[in-house]
Design a protein around this nucleic acid. Structure first.
Length: 112
DNA sequence: ATTTTGACTATGT
DNA sequence: AACATAGCCAAAA
């Protein structure tokens, strides 16, 4: 198990309900900026074994990346069940994207 | 060893 | 907004 794989699993596991992340975003967070397709493979092979919320992962356009015969309607059902709203066949990432906690994010403008 | 294959993305029309 | 193209990179063939 590579560090990258472990990081990907950890990140996906931590996506909260009602939020989504993109493949590329996960890859970057796991330390491989061009590893979106590797994230796909990991999901493909580990999603059941590690009980990952695979359905909270969408492409960079906010669309479900799989085909109907692969379970796209199930994915949409899961997401809508968590309150994620679709506009057409897309999700508004400005609203539903989950941002990983950046390194330093303590209040910068906290009045004292 | 080389080629093909994706649940992808950024970029340019 | 929708489509094409070129990168991408590990696993499978």
């Amino acid at each position: 198990m590579t560090p990258f794989t472990e990081a990907v699993i950890a990140i996906i596991t931590n996506i909260p309900e009602g939020k989504v992340m993109t493949y590329g975003q996960i890859a970057r967070g796991a330390g491989s900026p061009r590893g979106a397709r590797q994230v796909v493979r990991i999901l493909h092979s580990m999603s059941t074994k590690y009980k990952l919320p695979w359905y909270r992962v969408v492409n960079a356009q906010g669309e479900i990346a799989i085909q109907e015969d692969e379970g796209s309607s199930l994915q949409r059902m899961y997401l809508e069940g968590e309150g994620v709203e679709f506009t057409g066949n897309k999700i508004d990432l400005d609203i539903y994207r989950y941002h990983l906690e950046p390194a330093g994010h303590y209040e910068s403008g906290m009045p004292n």
